[in-house]
Nucleic acid binder design. Structure first.
Lengths: 350, 350
DNA sequence: AAAACTCACCTAATCGATTAGCTGGGTTCG
DNA sequence: CGAACCCAGCTAATCGATTAGGTGAGTTTT
């Protein structure tokens, strides 16, 4: 690889001049500029980022740390983030904390040594102390994505979880369902907890309660959702409708429903928050709330770049996006009988 | 951020000693070692990768350049690659060439200036000259993934496309289908072309031909598959079974089938290569061939790390994985009438 | 006991950029 | 006319690590 010295020698100028031409950081006469550019081309010179970064103290790297790369939701975030980050001139590093706080800690240490300019983090722990690079040093610019952490002062980009589950729940209630159940995420996460809370609020405001035996939470995974959904649905009297807190979980629930020989929406209605893109040709089509994922990701990157540019965090900004309901055909009106005597209709399926 | 000098000063040793302790690159007496480690801890020192990389000429970075990040297939590759790369001590940069050769070119230039230690590339162009870092310089260690490029001398990791489509096709033929159609990928890609060829070969060996009006190719995208499938299925006499060359395309085909009011497998059987993970609870369940994606990705990373370690490419290695058929319920035996008089049964579906 | 080795550690050059500060020729102004 | 100023371009310090080569004390060899 040619270095700046080779270019300088070939163009018969100093390295400072080459640098000035390359970075447009000072006026250089047209003649020298042309000589430099010719030399750059001839040697097919590309500046070493390692050297540049060492001197400048930045790296043009943004890290995206997601909680579970196997979840299609986060895959889409990766997709959107790659584009957004590239548009700002950065490159994207991907890390998977796999929902493990200690892995997250290791990753953030590595992010530090790689001197990434910023991090977009889907936090899995309940603390973000480790975001501080060290006691004295300044923290790495950070934007929390999707989830928040109590007491943290980073920028955040989230959706309104309460509203998401409320919308889905109200849709089910409007169809006449009263015996609802839910498969939600871990309750120590704002996404899992918030989506349960919104559902509870929606039911309460109609004077209904959510029976605790109809509430299940598990990790945001297909298999976890499958098993909690199974145990939920195998109870003697099962709910007539379910709200599921994630698209991936909805798949697990669907599989449980299929394996139990139940029909959706015939035997049970299902509404979720988020879905798996592209499955519109399969049956049933999920009724769900959708997040403006691309906008959210763009906003996260914008906030992060802003932090990087201003060189330190300002007053923390919390951007909340609104989900919207998309109706499929996984929900059906409850049959009159069930409404009239909810406790007696235990064997409707099969 | 503390530097190695700060550590050296605090531990009252030279920077060389600190470096030796950190890298275990030379014997250091227990006493000094302890002093150094204490200083490292107190200052919470982490070596600057920028400086280290500049000196060492490597970066601990591996780039993964995929053809379409929006495709769940590649999302899974990202997931598997992140884990594999981390296990070898590298970090993963993600780039999306979006099937555009000129974007790929730009990305590879950037990969060079970032001085990535290696690249896993899903090539979109038909040339890999730009893999050469420059006329004289040595090329970046590279492994081509999924697709190959004629005349290239990199290591490659692929599946046996011929076998994949042959297995799926034979399954359909065994069910009695004779009027087959296909929705495959772009024919200039080894994946699109190979999967068509395997199908043709399977049919030929049974004395059958694949009518050209039943052959459609399009980009490996859901929407592209949707539209070519629609135009394929809207023809006066449509095939009784389809082979679809990718999981994402299968979703598009399913949507087209649904929109046309056809039932799968009642009106049309569908078999594909690859699927979308987790959709086992939705109907129909795809009959498809599956690749050992995780093994493939691990192998790609292994080959790449091997190239990096040996410092230059050896004789190119081409590893081909075998797909296996997984039966769902998207295919049905053809009804006797259709087998007897294939040309007369135009209006069987809706 | 002097020569020859080891060993543990240090000094200083080096990687390839950026950039503060200098230089010397040309303008401007009092 | 000389002082003050500008300006393009250069010299050399610098970023923070690694590492070749050096040093002096202790050990072995003859």
């Amino acid at each position: 690889m040619a270095t700046i010295k080779d270019v300088a020698r070939k163009a018969e100028v100093s390295t400072a001049t080459v640098s000035a031409v390359i970075n447009d950081s000072a006026y250089v006469s047209p003649e020298l500029r042309a000589r430099v550019l010719a030399a750059v081309r001839d040697l097919s010179y590309a500046p070493s980022l390692a050297a540049r970064n060492l001197k400048r103290g930045r790296s043009q790297l943004i890290a995206l740390v997601v909680a579970d790369l196997a979840n299609p939701f986060f895959s889409r975030v990766v997709w959107a983030a790659e584009a957004a980050v590239a548009a700002w001139g950065y490159s994207l590093l991907i890390f998977n904390s796999d929902e493990k706080p200690e892995v997250e800690r290791r990753i953030l240490a590595r992010v530090r040594t790689l001197s990434c300019d910023g991090v977009i983090l889907v936090p899995v722990g309940d603390s973000t102390e480790h975001l501080q690079s060290d006691p004295d040093g300044k923290p790495i610019p950070t934007v929390l994505f999707g989830r928040t952490v109590a007491g943290d002062r980073s920028d955040t980009v989230t959706i309104d979880n309460i509203s998401a589950s409320r919308q889905a729940t109200e849709y089910l209630l409007d169809l006449g369902h009263t015996r609802l159940g839910t498969v939600t995420g871990p309750l120590h996460l704002t996404t899992g907890r918030g989506r349960l809370d919104g559902m509870l609020a929606a039911m309460r405001s109609r004077g209904l309660a959510l029976e605790s035996r109809y509430i299940r939470s598990g990790e945001f995974r297909e298999d976890a959702a499958y098993s909690v959904a199974r145990s939920l649905l195998e109870q003697p009297s099962r709910p007539t409708a379910l709200y599921v807190a994630s698209g991936l979980m909805a798949l697990g629930v669907m599989r449980a429903v299929a394996d139990l020989g139940l029909r959706c929406p015939g035997d049970i209605s299902i509404a979720s928050t988020d879905t798996i893109p592209g499955i519109g040709g399969l049956r049933p089509r999920l009724t769900r709330t959708e997040h403006p994922l691309v906008d959210m990701t763009n906003e996260a990157v914008r906030l992060l770049v802003d932090q990087i540019r201003r060189g330190g965090p300002a007053e923390p900004r919390n951007v909340v996006f609104q989900p919207s309901l998309v109706v499929g055909d996984s929900c059906a009106p409850v049959v009159a009988r069930s409404v009239a005597s909810p406790l007696s209709s235990s064997g409707s399926g099969q």
